Simulated scan of single mutants.
Amino acid sequence: MRYILFIIAVSLAVYSCDSTKSAMKGDKISATENDTIRIANDSLEYEIIIIEPGFNSWLVTQPSRGYYGLNYLENKNRFFVSEFNARVRNPQRYSPSLYPQEINYNFNTDYGYEVNYLLYNYFVYFQEKYNQHLPGGRR
């Protein structure tokens, strides 16, 4: 089964644990559930999982679904995924804790609006939160 695994949370959660420890005391399950977005389609055999503390609350402050066109999101995601994967393959220059594994995003697959919208917004969030700059991203 082909996956778009976006479990940066494993490494990013470890990376960001210090800032969320006090907020998660005694309520780990709901905090994890609130910060997890999962979209899957078994017929297309893809899955996107975003587990990032603060992503959901940040997402509601962004332009709503429908603001960007599907072509815009797909084009941005092509650039972002290509650059992200290049950084994964270059651990001497880019931190493996920020770039733990490649994203399996097939440019010829129609993932639909929702997946592209969430993936695009995750890249914007990632750049802002971790002070990274991916070509074509907001500054």
Rank of each mutant, 00 (worst) to 15 (best):
G54P: 09
S30Q: 06
N108T: 12
E74L: 05
E45D: 13
N108L: 14
I7S: 13
F84Y: 10
N108S: 14
N41V: 02
E47F: 00
W58N: 09
I8S: 02
R78W: 10
R93C: 10
P135Q: 04
K76V: 03
L73H: 12
I8F: 00
E45A: 11
F55H: 05
K25E: 02
N71H: 13
I48R: 04
I103G: 07
G69V: 00
F107S: 10
R89Q: 12
V124N: 03
E45H: 13
Y99L: 07
N34L: 00
Y99G: 04
R78T: 03
S82E: 10
N41Y: 06
G112T: 11
Y99F: 09
K28F: 08
N104P: 01
F79Q: 05
T32W: 01
R93V: 15
Y67F: 10
A9L: 04
N116F: 01
A23H: 01
K129Q: 12
F84I: 08
S43L: 11
S22Y: 09
M1G: 03
Y99P: 04
G26C: 01
Y111L: 04
D110A: 12
Y68S: 02
Y111A: 04
S95D: 07
G54M: 07
I49G: 02
V14A: 04
L134Q: 01
S19T: 07
E74T: 09
E114P: 08
G54S: 11
Y105T: 05
E45M: 11
S64E: 05
G112S: 07
N121A: 02
Y15S: 13
R78K: 06
S82N: 12
R89F: 11
P53S: 01
S95Y: 06
I50R: 07
W58G: 14
E83S: 15
N131D: 11
S57F: 10
V60D: 08
F55A: 05
I8H: 00
S16Q: 03
K28S: 00
D35W: 00
P91F: 02
N90E: 03
F107E: 13
V124G: 01
S19W: 00
G112V: 09
K76Y: 13
S82T: 09
P63R: 03
I29T: 08
N56K: 05
V88P: 02
T61A: 13
F55T: 10
R139I: 15
Y125H: 15
P63G: 08
Y122T: 08
